Simulated scan of single mutants.
Amino acid sequence: MNFEYSETQKMIAGSIRDFAEQHIRPNIMEWDESQYFPVELFKQLGEMGYMG
């Protein structure tokens, strides 16, 4: 069995990682402390095709 990621899987993982680094990481502590749920980020992920 081949357990290596395909090029498509690597591309998706990189895209999600970049999105998280740009849009989530800078705000995560503030959101956690204020108990804020960033719905707009999930809408953006949906527009990118990553929410089902």
Results as ranks from 00 to 15, higher is better:
R17W: 10
E40M: 09
E4P: 01
Y50H: 10
I12A: 10
G49L: 04
E7I: 12
A13P: 14
S6K: 15
G14P: 03
E4D: 13
I16Y: 12
Q44F: 06
P26I: 06
L45K: 06
E47D: 05
I28S: 00
W31L: 03
I16T: 04
Q35L: 10
M51W: 14
L41S: 04
F42W: 15
E47P: 01
E47C: 01
Q44N: 02
M48G: 04
E33V: 07
L41G: 02
P38G: 05
D18E: 08
E21D: 06
E33M: 08
T8D: 14
E40P: 05
E7K: 12
P38N: 09
E47F: 05
F37I: 13
E33N: 08
I24Q: 02
G14T: 00
R17T: 09
F42R: 13
Q44M: 12
M11N: 12
E21F: 04
R17M: 13
M29W: 01
E7T: 12
A13K: 15
S15Y: 00
Y50W: 13
Q35P: 02
G49D: 04
G49R: 06
D32I: 03
I24W: 02
I28N: 00
N27M: 14
I24R: 01
W31P: 04
M51G: 02
N2R: 15
D18W: 01
Q9F: 02
G14R: 05
D18M: 10
E30L: 01
E33W: 06
E4T: 13
E7A: 11
M29N: 06
Q22F: 08
V39P: 05
S6R: 03
N2V: 11
G52N: 11
M48D: 06
A13T: 10
P38F: 13
N27S: 10
P38Q: 13
G14I: 01
A13D: 14
E33I: 07
L41I: 11
E4C: 12
D32P: 03
A20I: 07
R17I: 10
Y36E: 15
G49S: 07
D18K: 11
G46I: 07
A13H: 15
K10C: 03
Y36M: 14
S34P: 04
Y36N: 14
S15E: 11
M48S: 08
D18G: 01
D32G: 11
S6L: 14
Q44S: 11
S15I: 06
M51A: 06
M29D: 11
E30Y: 15
M51E: 13
V39D: 12
F19C: 08
R17L: 10
R25E: 10
I16M: 15
Y36I: 12
I28T: 00
P26H: 07
E33K: 09
Q22P: 08
Y5V: 00
G52T: 14
P26W: 05
M1G: 09
K43T: 09
A20Q: 04
I16V: 09
I24D: 00
